[in-house]
Nucleic acid binder design. Structure first.
Lengths: 211, 211
DNA sequence: TCACTTTTCGAACCGTCGTTCGAAACGCGC
DNA sequence: GCGCGTTTCGAACGACGGTTCGAAAAGTGA
């Protein structure tokens, strides 16, 4: 499972091959199937385990009595560490498309439970004026995005350790929710004309509303 | 290309099939190859175009004279709109693995140019004390993560429009750079014992520092 | 040593996917 | 209608990936 998580994180789920996973685990491809029913199950276990750990962190954040920003910061740092450092951690919980009819539902349910839990914390913080967010749902997802994206760029052989990255990213993510925004011009006076349509010369414009 | 971008965003690059793209574009699979050399080129065009638009937004942010947070906010909102709203936009620029030997270099170079440009803005803001970030590189990537992640959860038929989401996410992302951490216990007094090593019985420890 | 279970693996099956080929259908100027 | 370039597509090829099969090797307890 550790090998699978590694390969999933490095190549992405769809691009990861069972033969590659097997070789990373020092097994023959066929032998993998005596431990796992198939690729989907492997993916499911990785995701399920990561989510379980994150839900534990969420429960801890709920029960602590420290100020909300501090609790969220710990939650965020643990979240990032789950993706990066912990050997068995996997960023696979981000790709839910794919295939599994039954398994997918279980993962999505768990993931939603996690997200809803965080959103409840955020919304509560906003109500108590300890946090600031225009929309708790969007803010929560942006918050999670800053955390999840680390799986895309972190390199274990890089300059900073997983712990350092987790701390820095967690600080950033929580700062986005903290109040006392420093008088940013709320809507920006800049012209803002998207330079849209971009004059594409293009071959021709077939298929305009066919079907 | 619009159809390809759609399928790429929905299924991911590796999981997207040429047959599916073709059918989404009302073409036969074979016919696709009279307009594009192959899947890689299709991917390249999508990524290149998105990046081009983002680089334009970056150039605008560089030349404006508004306060830095406001400029970053506009840049962020445009970035999100590139991923979400603009029909031809594509979130494909996030998957650079895959295959292309020559094309890959060009995309990565362009992406790095974009990231470096933003990082320069951030670092400059930190120097002028208009922004706050412990590490400009990590902060920039967390910033971009909050933006990029929208491609994973945004649904066009959802409650809020792409513009609303872009605004809210951009506000959050910039707040993470402009908010002084409000005396969050810097290292959090919470116990924090990662429940690490998790007692894995493990088979054996081959390949420790192999390479 | 002997059954019996567990683990391992080489080889192959089968589907899918990216891609190509050859030719039919179309558009258009003459 | 006739040529000619463009567009379209059905069918198939080759490769790769997930998976299965059957049996050999390794472990286990008496």
């Amino acid at each position: 499972m550790r090998a699978a998580a590694q390969v999933f994180r490095a190549r992405g789920f769809a691009a990861a091959g069972m033969r590659e996973i097997a070789s990373a685990a020092d097994l023959s491809p066929a032998n993998l199937y005596h431990y796992f029913r198939g690729k989907d199950e492997l993916r499911f276990f990785c995701q399920d385990q990561s989510l379980e750990r994150m839900l534990n962190a969420l429960a801890r954040a709920r029960r602590e009595r420290a100020p909300l920003p501090a609790r969220l910061r710990d939650l965020a740092a643990t979240h990032v560490l789950c993706l990066l450092d912990e050997v068995e951690g996997s960023a696979a919980h981000l790709e839910v498309y794919g295939l599994p009819p039954r398994l997918r539902a279980r993962i999505v349910a768990k993931r939603d439970r996690y997200e809803r839990g965080i959103r409840a914390l955020v919304a509560d913080g906003v109500r108590r004026r300890q946090l600031h967010a225009a929309d708790a749902t969007i803010a929560t997802r942006a918050f999670l995005g800053a955390l999840n994206w680390t799986a895309h760029w972190f390199r274990p052989d890089g300059a900073q350790s997983a712990q350092q990255v987790a701390d820095a990213v967690a600080d950033y993510a929580v700062a986005g929710l903290s109040n006392r925004q420093s008088t940013i011009s709320q809507r920006s006076a800049i012209s803002h004309q998207p330079s849209h349509d971009h004059h594409r010369p293009d071959r021709q414009r077939r298929n305009n509303r066919g079907r």
